[in-house]
């Protein structure tokens, strides 16, 4: 499972089979390769290096799910859809690189909820989102202590001065 940006760089990736691409170098070459093959044509599915890869892109993000060539393509597709939909819900339909990086923690948790050690844990986006306990960013003021609010205000001021 991988999310790449529009230059083919890895944002998040998780490989569950240690026999396929054991080192991160091999993983990255594979990702580059995959990206080069897929970024032009939006064709949803491709076979590469003996793996079946299904993919989907949005703005500047590419979502991939890879499986062995014997795997049922539709199962892979269901995982991909789940991944995409969960991320989309987490980011409130705002699926782009910056948003993913801003909520990287939640996206990581979502990936963890979808697949655990190579076994599909859940393929229903709404239940994944529910399980990662989406942090509602609008109410943190109430939760934060006064000191924290003050500190964040201070920091904001500092940054705007620095600019």
């Amino acid at each position: 499972m991988a999310i790449l940006d529009n230059d083919g760089n890895r944002i998040l990736a998780k490989y569950y089979d240690k026999n396929v691409f054991p080192t991160s170098k091999e993983q990255k070459t594979f990702e580059k390769n995959l990206f080069n093959k897929t970024h032009r044509a939006n064709a949803e599915i491709i076979m590469l290096d003996g793996l079946t890869c299904v993919y989907r892109s949005n703005v500047d993000l590419f979502f991939y799910v890879m499986g062995s060539s014997h795997e049922n393509e539709l199962i892979l597709m269901s995982v991909l859809n789940c991944l995409y939909d969960s991320v989309s819900q987490i980011l409130r339909k705002n699926v782009e690189k910056k948003a993913v990086l801003d909520s990287l923690d939640i996206v990581m948790l979502a990936m963890d909820e979808i697949c655990d050690g190579g076994i599909i844990l859940d393929a229903d986006a709404s239940s994944v989102v529910q399980r990662v306990a989406l942090r509602t960013d609008d109410i943190p003021l109430g939760e934060q202590t006064v000191a924290q609010v003050l500190q964040s205000a201070k920091e904001q001021l500092k940054w705007s001065l620095l600019k």
Binding site: K97, K98, L101, D102, L104, D137, S152, E155, Q156, W159
Partner: peptide, 20 residues
């Protein structure tokens, strides 16, 4: 908006927008 989200972070945001 970016700064406000990562207000407590000590890492300097880069121009590309990838804080990491």
């Amino acid at each position: 908006s970016f700064i406000s989200r990562n207000s407590t972070s000590s890492c300097k945001p880069t121009r590309g927008g990838n804080p990491f």
